[in-house]
Design a protein around this nucleic acid. Structure first.
Lengths: 320, 320
DNA sequence: ACTTCACTGACAGCAGTTGTCAGTGAAGTT
DNA sequence: AACTTCACTGACAACTGCTGTCAGTGAAGT
């Protein structure tokens, strides 16, 4: 059935309104161009009004672009969508109601057999996350709306210094779920720059009558990641950190959100990272401490010294 | 394409609402009855809800709702499904191909206007997780299959003691994604008990010709959670742990997967947990250490002593 | 004159489809 | 309890139709 699938795909591609050459199609579907011609022929033969233009700027296009045929999902596709819904639900996805509606529709349109297969596949599949902050949902909903409709909102934000800062108007460019925590990336009219806000620290949110335009090329993901983990490639003065220890402890260390990004090499007994000096001596000690004696720092000596200092400070701190 | 034509004809015939036997169809289309069964199968596989009844007055018919109204999603429902797919994708969901197909179908079935609304809603929504173990995907796929079809599989598992233990046959009861890590819950024929396995430690997996029956009332989620966080409610001898400190540090502490489960009370300056003595003195110190001086232990004194001991040990450990 | 692009025919090799046969199991009927 | 009807499965040989390759035509624009 690759044939049928591909023919349908061509239909969809054309249905989007784009004009496509046979070559483009053949490359996208990884089939011979000859085969594309054959498919197009077959589609025409079954009544699809495909227009073909030869010469420069030629290609195929559809006469009137909607094809109405019922939306059909194969069992596998249904299964994956239902599984995906579990992930969203566990992550505290704010629009749980609409999601619930969608999934129940998906489940309805099946016969007994498909249903039993589905339930089999669903029964053994679980997603479990920590509960997180339940109060966050209404704020997230509001934010999601604001992002999609480009409405500015006014929020009161509890920032790190504990002082309740004044209300601020922000233009939310995006909502990000990072490591199971919710953030919003927004242009802040108080500070006049793009910043990221932790959603659970938003104490209050209200719509404003103002709207904004998000820059077309803005990507919340890119901004967030750049902010979190500035690119280190090509930087000089990087120090290599070598950690030894039990394989499982190293495994765990290597998927730490921060260290993972700096991993250079991994053998069964060692992990080598490349880090900037500053973060190496400020953040890393606190990442390493909880692993106790299941890992050891092999290099650099300075980090060992720093660890001794940190441990000794903590000892004092709790001695009182 | 007699095949496609004939399949469509069957759809048409059924869509009239009539009930038809395979024999009737085969005679009308002048094809072998075996081929009819194959076509029906193919239609089911691509999501058409065909109902089949055996015995007298049996035959094929279409799910009633299906004829009346095809599967239609509101724009919100589409949006949530697409958002959900992002979560799955970022979590390293193994059946990414089928998911991709499903989401592209969802995107296709909208007109220009809906499409632009959708793309707006999608542009500002991002899910970002750590990358995790890329090698895990084929194993997960195999496991998911085995779970759904109740096939026993043989695995080689690298367990904590580093020794490569002998291959074992397991009956996978479920696949669990916990805190962005993949586990499988399975009956282990080597140890004769239900256990959980970390998927990235499965070095090799092969199907066996054996199958099993999962107990009907078994829930992978329940087993996993019981295993991870035994119920403490009603237990005696619990000790209360009181932590003070900066609100944001406390927030973070309160969503730690282990402590979250034992949280009793939270004020803006304190968090109170109720814990068993053992875990309080073994696990908790290592959870608290990385917070450094941003939090402090208010009670019990014994934990402070333990922290001093742990810190001093680590100091020594890194002094060499 | 040149490039781009749709389109055709022929053909060998191959993949998918078909019919045939033999048999299982479920739901009614006699 | 035997019988009928009907869906459904697996295996297999024969065969159909599909695919990629090559070589070449014609139309439209630069």
């Amino acid at each position: 059935m690759p044939k049928n699938d591909n023919m349908l795909t061509i239909l969809w591609m054309l249905n989007s309104g784009e004009k496509l050459t046979a070559k483009q199609i053949s490359e996208k579907l990884e089939i011979n161009i000859r085969t594309v011609y054959r498919y197009i022929d077959a589609l025409c033969a079954s009544g699809v009004p495909i227009i073909s233009d030869t010469g420069h700027n030629g290609g195929y296009s559809l006469l009137h672009n909607f094809i109405k045929s019922p939306l059909l999902f194969s069992i596998d596709e249904k299964k994956t969508l239902l599984h995906a819904a579990l992930f969203a639900k566990e992550a505290g996805y704010p629009l749980s109601e609409a999601l619930e509606n969608a999934t129940s529709k998906l489940k309805m349109y099946s016969n007994q057999e498909q249903e039993s297969i589905l339930s089999h596949h669903l029964a053994g599949f679980e997603v479990i996350n920590r509960r997180g902050y339940p109060a966050v949902q209404p704020v997230l909903q509001e934010l999601e709306h604001a992002v999609a409709n480009e409405w500015s909102v006014e929020i009161s934000y509890r920032n790190s210094h504990e002082e309740q800062s004044p209300n601020r108007v922000i233009d939310p460019y995006g909502v990000v779920n990072w490591n199971n925590k919710w953030y919003t990336i927004a242009f802040c009219h108080l500070r006049n720059e793009i910043r990221s806000f932790r959603v659970e620290r938003i104490l209050n949110i209200t719509r404003t009558p103002f709207s904004f335009r998000r820059p077309n090329d803005f990507s919340a993901r890119t901004f967030f990641m750049k902010n979190l983990l500035p690119d280190v490639v090509g930087k000089s003065g990087l120090i290599s950190l070598i950690i030894g220890g039990r394989a499982e402890a190293l495994d765990d260390l290597c998927i730490h959100w921060f260290l993972e990004h700096h991993l250079q090499e991994r053998t069964s007994t060692q992990a080598i990272f490349l880090l900037e000096e500053e973060s190496l001596y400020t953040h890393v000690p606190y990442i390493i401490l909880p692993y106790g004696k299941s890992i050891q720092v092999i290099e650099p000596q300075n980090l060992k010294n720093k660890l001794v200092a940190v441990a000794s400070e903590l000892m004092e701190y709790y001695q009182v």
